[in-house]
Design a protein around this nucleic acid. Structure first.
Lengths: 249, 249
DNA sequence: GATTGAAGGGCGGATGTCCAAACCTTTTCT
DNA sequence: AGAAAAGGTTTGGACATCCGCCCTTCAATC
């Protein structure tokens, strides 16, 4: 048995690898992932208060996990007050109404707020461009309806934010790219923790709505570049507001 | 013990939740994640052939995993021929040179190629915009150097692709947003499986280079919108090539 | 009023993953 | 010769997950 390797270590290339290559790997458990998914959907209002989740036996099949794992997740969401379950023939797991108050953003969250915004920017720029290229008339009609809701809720921030989320997720759905919908949902979820804790006077919401209108108009015309520009202005507006209130260097 | 829940299931809202909410959750193990990370970095050339990885005891600390888990990953990468290890004081784990031939894209990969492109589009649009806003002169000089390499490798696709990756990842690093670097790396890795299997005549590469030049010029001037436009043209160019060769819808 | 079906609730074991902490072997430098 | 630094090996335990099976509840139905 010769100990001589067929290959000799060469003198390394000049280029140093990005340090991101050796950054910590985080392994998510099925339990965590499920709590995150359902919890985010609930907090974003994608699962409406009072609505019923699919039956456990069906839901675990859809999610591709064991029922016991799903039950752990549902138990956690139950303990935090986001869902409750009733037994018996017409029973099921339901989204609580009203929802428990959101908890304040963690220190870790606050420390990384800029990266969170960056990530959302990327996702939403992609969504804007692809939606402009692919949205069908039916999508646009649905989005217009949401936009009307937005115009009508300037005074009620909770309702406004709700409709805002619907608009952005709806735009993502118009791209017909499930992964983008997923990414957009996650990004909105991460942002919500930040957005819920800053003041939003009606005037800010009104200017936000003007950007929404421009965005939808560009999407309707299929003008991808204008859509991207409108989205960028929209997002960087809220980013400026955050920058003024958070410890962001 | 009353069996009456304080809350009654309400009639659900009119809005149906996005089906993405109940899509399968995939839990990645630390082992898989590590193989993916290191494997991608190697395949992309971010870890140069012949270069040495950090010692196992150091690397597992950096990656935040146990040494035995890291060794499983390194064993897997060793069996596929991407790395090899030597023992003793000056030993270590090294990136193989030359690398084993890439394996053809899986059926699953091909079936989802459009979503992969969409995801890359999003990431890269975000990178383009943020790089234009944040890149420092030092970043730009380094990127220009890579661009020169690109101009000189029109005839050698492997070398060209290598430099192309460096350019895109370098741009991501200029955003100072580690998560975007991560995302850009993953997106390039996913694309490589597709790109390696389609022909790239020098004329295509030349036109690609023209787009690179425009992109870098816009970034240098801090013109975010032009950078985004240049990036979009660049990416959708390669997407058109793919669309012509793959079973796309 | 008994039965049935669909829902949540619970238990126990089998399996696989991950980690921590040792200890061994090889090589090279001092 | 010995220390140091690297990969290689073994062990045991903690934990997550899955699977199957059975129980409880309760509205609908017979």
């Amino acid at each position: 048995m010769v100990g001589v390797p067929e290959q000799r270590p060469a003198s390394a290339g000049v280029l140093t690898p990005p340090e991101a290559v050796f950054a910590p790997v985080r392994s998510y458990t099925a339990f965590e992932e499920t709590v995150e998914r359902l919890g985010t959907a609930i907090k974003l209002g994608l699962l409406a208060p009072g609505s019923r989740l699919p039956a456990e036996r069906e839901l675990c099949a859809r999610l591709g996990i064991a029922r016991s794992t799903l039950r752990q997740a549902l138990t956690a969401l139950g303990q935090s007050g986001h869902v409750f379950a009733t037994r018996g023939r017409r029973g099921g797991t339901f989204v609580s109404d009203p929802q428990p108050p959101a908890d304040p953003p963690s220190a870790e969250m606050l420390a990384q707020w800029r990266q969170t915004c960056d990530q959302r920017l990327a996702v939403e720029l992609g969504v804007a461009m692809l939606a402009a290229q692919r949205a069908e008339p039916a999508d646009l009609d649905a989005l217009d309806e949401v936009a009307e809701t937005l115009e009508a809720t300037l005074e009620d921030f909770a309702a406004y934010r709700q409709a805002d989320i619907r608009l952005h997720v709806g735009l993502a759905e118009a791209t017909r790219s499930p992964r983008l919908v997923q990414a957009a949902t996650e990004a909105q979820g991460a942002m919500s923790d930040l957005i819920a804790y800053i003041a939003h006077p009606p005037q800010v919401l009104a200017s936000s709505n003007a950007q929404h209108r421009r965005l939808l108009a560009a999407v309707r015309e299929g003008d991808a570049l204008r859509a991207v520009r409108a989205m960028a202005e929209h997002l960087q507006g809220t980013e400026h507001v955050l920058a003024g209130l958070l410890p962001g260097h």
